[in-house]
Design a protein around this nucleic acid. Sequence first.
RNA 1: GGAGGCUUCGCCUAGUCAGGUCUAUGGCGCCGCACUGCUAAUGCGGUUUGGGUCUAAAGCCCAUCCCGGGUUCGAAUCCCGGAGCCUCCGCCA
Length: 417
Amino acid sequence: MIDLKLVRDDPERARASQRLRGEDETRVDALLAADDARRAAVARADKLRGEQKTIGREVAQASPEHRPAVLARAKHLADEVKAAEADQAEADAALQAAQLALPNIVEDGVVPGGENDFVTLDVAGERPQIENPKDHLEIGAALKAIDTERGAKVSGARFYFLTGVGAQLEFALVNLAMQQASDTGFTQVIAPALVKPEIMQGTGFLGAHAAEVYRLADDDLYLVGTSEVALAGYHANEILEGLPLRYAGFSSCFRREAGSYGKDTKGIIRVHWFDKVEMFSYVDVADARDEHQRLLAWEREFMDKLELSYRVIDVAAGDLGSSAARKFDIEAWFPSQGAYRELTSTSNCTTFQSRRLNIRTRGPSGNVPVATLNGTLVAAARTIACLLDHHQQPDGSVYVPAALRPYLGGREVLSPA
RNA sequence: GGAGGCUUCGCCUAGUCAGGUCUAUGGCGCCGCACUGCUAAUGCGGUUUGGGUCUAAAGCCCAUCCCGGGUUCGAAUCCCGGAGCCUCCGCCA
């Protein structure tokens, strides 16, 4: 939800943001119209309620002979109040719908365009030179680390089992990530994977991409697609002190992958379920851009520990999620694909989520919404896929980055049994 | 799954049985002022959160007693539904 006052004061900025995203700019004017209508309805209802309060007191004080007349007037007024309140409720709902229909205002500097219009900010690490590289599935099968066949048998397509060294790899990655987060001052969190509708709504995932989200209809709960959801909900309806607050959350994540038929059908790059360690920051609005750079730096630090070659991209406006004002992705090199693939992503959501979730801090003149930011430290399945692909050796073994070795019993390579 | 209790403006609390200056009481904490050599103590005043009106401030108005409905001229209070917390029973890793 974007700042209504900002839209009133500077509607052109909101329209420009919509254009940059390639979305409908008339929604801004629809919002302004809904705002006007609501304020008119509120003023009418407030006035009538005031009259009703006055006449209510008169009823109580009226002498027996005057009472019937006053009561008759009061009854008539009650009907008017009821009608005005119904109008107000309708206007409130219309305004809310108009607000929910608008994505966050894009940060200055974001380029227009879609998925392929990103700007490459940096390229790091050396791409390994491998003759006829195998893909992660082949390597994972040889190591008895990944079992997608039994994943499909038990749960269906895009499910997998991590076994043996595969399972160890996940624990190692999660531990390494959590250790880094803790050393950096994040509070470690294990977060629920099921959340209530208002939390899912509040983080902006029930808008355009609602079809991506699993819902448990019997219980009216949603499965989170990212740990960000529960970490954002953690402080819902609170007034925060002592910003910045930083959390590193571990949770399973679930995605329906609707509309991604045919993409990455092999292996565990695109799956319905994976585990994740996510950084999440609550900061003062003025500090949000700097925090975004810090999150990116911490993501890079983790990539460097894994000794991966990667590039950092500044995602174009049309490819931003509805809650993000800006997003940087880190894409790592997959030799078998000859391509960079997204491993992590960090978004500055400014006050978009905090307004919906009512998360504020005390400002010099009253309570103000905080900024929320998120960044992936590690998404286990895809990172394992990348590690196997990227660090494969000609003999079929897999090189273990030095930082991971303490979590893998000191092993320097993983070899097929 | 069953039975009972609880939820009031930071925290605690009065008020709910008998609906009407409840415009929500008092205490603690916090802020300001006074007194004071300093501290403490004391006294006085302020202190929920939203929304609307207004160029702005002040002021005024409306809403807000866990949430949503209902009854009524009028609901913290009565009725229905729901949520959360606690206790006990059952079941369970």
